[in-house]
Amino acid sequence: MDSVSVFTDFQFSDLGFLAEAAGRTLLISVLAISIGTVLGCVFGWVLSATRLAGDATLGVILDIFRSVPLIIQLILFYNFFPIIGFNVSPFVAGTIVLIFYTSALVAAVARGGIDAVSINLRRASRSLGMTYWQDLRYVVWPVGLRAVLPSWAGVALGVLKDSALVSVLGYVELLRASQILITRTQEPFLILTVVGAFYFALSFPISRITARLERRWQYD
């Protein structure tokens, strides 16, 4: 073929491009998971402490994040900011939505963790002279954590994978990078396989580690 081709094959340097994009996936996921977990724990504690009143207010709001597809949430928020007069980058909009999405999922987990600690245990700690916060920190946290760590890991893994949806806003993370490369190289199978391997490499270790932790904590 003598004509000039606009497509070039997949090259070794493209792996660097993908690795950089994987770094962005990791960045946005770590931000969302860390901040979202802290927020979610607070929400979970509020839900557990306020019962019905919390369920009727905060619970309903958090429930919306879990009942509407993330992709719709992202598009809504991204288009909402210009309406109120802000222009935000896809990264900021995506991170904010992911944080709230994570916090909504973690809130349910955290609430389950707090409720998993028997009320008698908490009364016992209080009657030993612990303050409310000491009870929360030294009794509820360690006991509840063991009960819900696997669920939390499930949420974290889910967010890592769901961060791929931020690509619809135009943020060049792993999945978006794959689309760019596919357009250039016209080798969708190869590139999707490589990107799949990247995602797998990010998420598989987490699921293994938590599976091991879960097993170890069961026996001691």
Binding site: L157, K161, D162, A164, L165, S167, L175, S178, P188, L192, V195, G196, Y199, F200, S203, F204, S207
Partner: peptide, 12 residues
């Protein structure tokens, strides 16, 4: 594979 890669990637 189904559990450790994004659903969107699977769709693609």
């Amino acid at each position: 594979l189904a559990r450790n890669t994004p659903a969107l990637l699977q769709l693609f």
